[in-house]
Write a protein that binds this DNA or RNA. Structure first.
Length: 679
DNA sequence: CTCTCCCTT
């Protein structure tokens, strides 16, 4: 381990230890005290003016590059485009193509990583062109298709285009495809790259534009056989960049102190603070409230706005209210504000340099969601958030040295940190068996590919007919196998309900079944009063209306797909065993057996696991369970757990389990072999 | 005896 890694590790350990305990001790409202810590803890130095190269061109008109762009498009099959955020490339390029007549030969499709972006950009373009949204200009993503026969400029999510390729691999109806925000490297974008690169070889009149915001456009250019890169001029205000002089162990405390320091010393303007999650944001909010309370008229009012993905929409709206005269707003955000959400009027950014990152360990099948240092690209993205409407300042709570030596250049692409079973299945259905030589821009870990293939084999998905059926469903293979298997157990109605609620419920805890059933009755009666009852039920049970709606949409879609793959809708509500067997048909690779000490060992790739305390089975501890997923947080937790009879495993998956795997010990009590289970 | 950064089909 090099010294920087060691340093990083130590800092993170310290941060973890102090966070929580330390915050609770320091609850002084004292004005003096604030400044005492300020001087003690956070000391910055001004490093540079970030991205100041456009500084002199602010008031000048940006040059019109449309003619040159169109020339380049006509000359080359693939073109990379690079532009600062705010250069308007997403909005303008498709309009240039439209005016130049490209849309007469076919549609122009433009992919976005996010739904909101697809929708809002389409709305803006239709407005600029003076046409009705959904006519010439439209958008499309799952559950919402705002296009018509007239549509020639189509904005869509990258995942949507991927689905379209599965249905029609040659994409005949398109003449131009633009992959926008390519630098974000979503799984869908990476897979699209591979498919489109192949497609342009036999669809010579297809034009491909790869659009990205950062300078790694050269990587994309190389990937597409040295495609030329077209730079689109943009403008951005300069941002003064500050680094901590010394490492800060407790970044929440440091962030809070910096907020107060800015609030007292700097001219008016709103502050954006990047934290890692809901928990930290709520903690920081409370501390800030305490420290500013009682200061009265000594300082200006500080309005605290928390924003994270889980926050109900009506509370999120608060950040868009303009800051009152004389006051200052501090917005505490997760990564949601790095790309998805733009907040106007931000003048100061505070960046502790951390984010929660989901990753997947193919060896153990464990997913984890842990706090990690961000990449340089990500740090620069955060910094730029302060220079959108005027010159800004960015305070990095880490040292310049750590920026250079302790942070990766780019965030690890999603394809390298995710479970690949779903995408491997889709590619198999497109006739792509060899992913290593498929020509991806970055290869996933070999183990992840093997693990995916092994799973698909176990599920029988490598059989063409079964695989096709499963691939129709836009869900994980284990879950789609459950749906396919529900035909046999005559309970497809119940299974698609379970599948659509997805991550929130896979098992209905016994003690809550009456509640769940009552709620469903309320849901189906369709009377206004009952809807109110349902709303109340949602509130009482802390269920977001948003997730309920989503579950209903997914259920409708799954029901439609059942017909497509010719599975009849059958209901078998009284036979819980049939439902459990259907679930086991998809999730049998995720079985685990109870140990003496109340923990579990997974059966196939032996691994310790615990039932998550929020599960209805946390107290019951069934001898055998199957689980939906294994997540590492404070411990290895199984989420969404169902009990089962071990003999079902052999019955359902004889190719995967043998009798000796599931043998019960002679004793009726706890298994004698508790400590031996690893064998 | 405690999970949910952000997305998406």
């Amino acid at each position: 381990m090099n010294p920087f890694d060691a340093w990083e590790k130590q800092q993170r350990k310290k941060a973890d230890l102090k966070y929580g305990s330390k915050n609770k001790k320091q609850q002084s409202d004292d004005y003096q005290y604030v400044f005492e810590i300020e001087d003690k803890i956070v000391d910055f130095f001004r490093e540079s003016v970030f991205d100041g190269d456009n500084f002199d061109e602010f008031d000048s008109e940006l040059p019109d590059k449309s003619a040159e762009l169109l020339q380049a498009v006509s000359e080359y099959p693939v073109l990379g485009t690079v532009g600062e955020t705010g250069s308007g490339k997403t909005i303008q390029i498709p309009q240039y193509l439209y005016e130049a007549g490209y849309t007469k030969q076919g549609k122009t499709g433009c992919t976005q990583p996010r739904r909101v972006a697809a929708m809002s950009v389409a709305a803006r373009v239709s407005q600029e062109m003076g046409v009705k949204l959904g006519h010439e200009v439209g958008y499309s993503f799952r559950f919402e298709d705002c296009t018509s026969d007239k549509t020639v400029l189509k904005y869509m999510t990258d995942g949507m285009l991927l689905r379209e390729i599965v249905i029609e691999p040659s994409l005949e109806s398109y003449s131009v495809l633009i992959v926008d925000e390519a630098h974000e490297r979503t799984l869908s974008t990476d897979i699209l790259f591979g498919l489109l690169k192949d497609l342009i070889n036999y669809r010579s009149y297809l034009k491909l534009l790869i659009s990205s915001a950062t300078l790694d456009a050269e990587k994309f250019s190389d990937y597409f056989g040295s495609a030329p890169i077209f730079k689109i001029p943009g403008r951005r205000y300069p941002v003064e960049l500050f680094y901590a002089k010394a490492p800060e162990a407790d970044y929440i405390e440091a962030a809070i102190v910096t907020v107060l320091k800015i609030h007292v010393n700097e001219p008016i303007g709103d502050i954006l603070v990047f934290l890692t999650g809901q928990d930290e944001i709520e903690t920081a909010k409370e501390i800030l409230k305490q420290r500013t309370r009682g200061l009265g008229t000594k300082i200006a009012e500080l309005i605290i706005c928390p924003i994270y993905g889980n926050l109900p929409t009506e509370l999120q709206a608060k950040i868009f209210e303009p800051t009152p005269e004389g006051a200052r707003k501090v917005v505490l955000v997760t990564n949601i504000a790095e790309t998805s959400l733009t907040i106007d009027g931000i003048k100061y950014v505070i960046d502790p340099g951390f984010a929660k990152v989901k990753s997947y360990n193919p060896k153990t099948g464990i997913e984890s969601l842990l706090v990690n240092p961000i990449s340089k690209a990500s740090a620069n993205q955060r910094t730029a958030r302060s220079g959108r409407t005027g010159p800004g300042k960015c305070f990095r709570l880490y040292t310049l040295h750590n920026y250079h030596k302790g942070m990766d250049d780019n965030t690890v692409p999603e394809i390298q940190r995710t479970n690949l079973a779903n995408i491997v299945l889709i590619l198999k259905c497109l006739g792509i068996d060899d992913l290593v030589n498929f020509g991806l821009i970055d290869l996933p870990p070999e183990e992840a590919l093997l693990k995916a293939l092994e799973l698909l084999y176990a599920l029988g998905a490598l059989n063409k007919a079964v695989g096709r059926q499963m691939a129709e469903f836009p869900i994980d293979p284990m879950l789609s196998k459950t749906i396919v298997a529900s035909d046999k157990y005559k309970c497809s109605y119940e299974i698609i309900t379970i599948a659509s609620v997805g991550n929130s419920i896979l098992y209905r805890p016994k003690d809550k079944q009456i509640h769940a059933d009552n709620a469903r009755l309320n849901f189906h009666l369709g009377d206004v009063k009952d809807h109110i009852a349902l709303l109340r039920w949602c509130r009482e049970n802390y269920i977001q209306i948003r997730s309920m709606k989503r579950a209903r949409d997914i259920r409708d879609q799954l029901e439609g797909l059942l017909a497509r793959v010719e599975i009849e809708i059958t209901s078998n509500l009284n036979d819980l065993d049939a439902i459990k067997k259907a679930i086991a048909s998809g999730f049998f690779p995720h079985s685990a057996k109870l140990q003496k000490n109340g923990s579990y060992w997974t059966v196939k790739h032996p691994q310790r696991a615990h039932i998550h305390p929020s599960s209805g089975l946390g107290q019951v501890l069934p001898r055998w369970v199957i689980y939906h997923e294994l997540v590492l947080t404070t411990k290895e937790y199984m989420r969404q757990v169902t009990d089962l009879k071990p003999k079902w495993l052999v019955e359902i998956a004889p190719h995967y389990y043998q009798l000796k795997d599931v043998e019960e010990p002679a004793s009726k009590k706890m298994p004698r072999a508790a400590g031996r289970a690893k064998e």
